[in-house]
């Protein structure tokens, strides 16, 4: 660990750096939950229109900053310490967003109802 977490990698402005920033943003903002698998290197390379080596380099940056953990056969997963919420909760929030959008619900209404239900459930518990 030569650099501190969140430090800018040496080749700033490169495609690998751009991919690194995007994923770091997703993890620190809670859009990716702890233990959640990142897309494959191939898919990321495809999505960004770069070579697989460039995407792999970005994943190395994330690993170096302890934002993700890479294990053989388990793939690259968001580390427990870096994530805001567990993967199971984030996945349900995503499903809720898709469903609410599909039926045309208002974001403020969804948040309001979520808060009411949350408080009620906490009281019951």
């Amino acid at each position: 660990m030569g650099e501190q977490a969140g430090a800018v990698p040496a080749d700033e402005g490169s495609p690998a750096q751009e991919i690194y920033r995007q994923f770091r943003g997703l993890i620190t903002s809670g859009q990716l939950g702890s233990g959640e698998r990142l897309p494959t290197v191939r898919q990321t390379a495809n999505d960004f229109g770069v070579a697989p080596g460039t995407a792999a380099k970005a994943y190395k940056f994330l690993e170096r900053d302890q934002l993700v953990v890479t294990r053989t056969a388990a793939g690259t997963r968001v580390s427990e310490t870096a994530a805001v919420l567990p993967a199971s909760v984030v996945r349900r929030i995503r499903d809720l967003t898709v469903e609410a959008e599909a039926v045309g619900s208002d974001l403020a209404d969804v948040i309001g109802v979520l808060r009411v239900i949350w408080n009620k459930e906490v009281d019951v518990l």
Partner: peptide
């Protein structure tokens, strides 16, 4: 169509 690079990349949160 795949050979055309995306106009602005979209970061995926899940494996497709």
């Amino acid at each position: 169509r795949k050979t055309v690079a995306p106009a602005r990349p979209v970061v995926a949160t899940a494996r497709r």
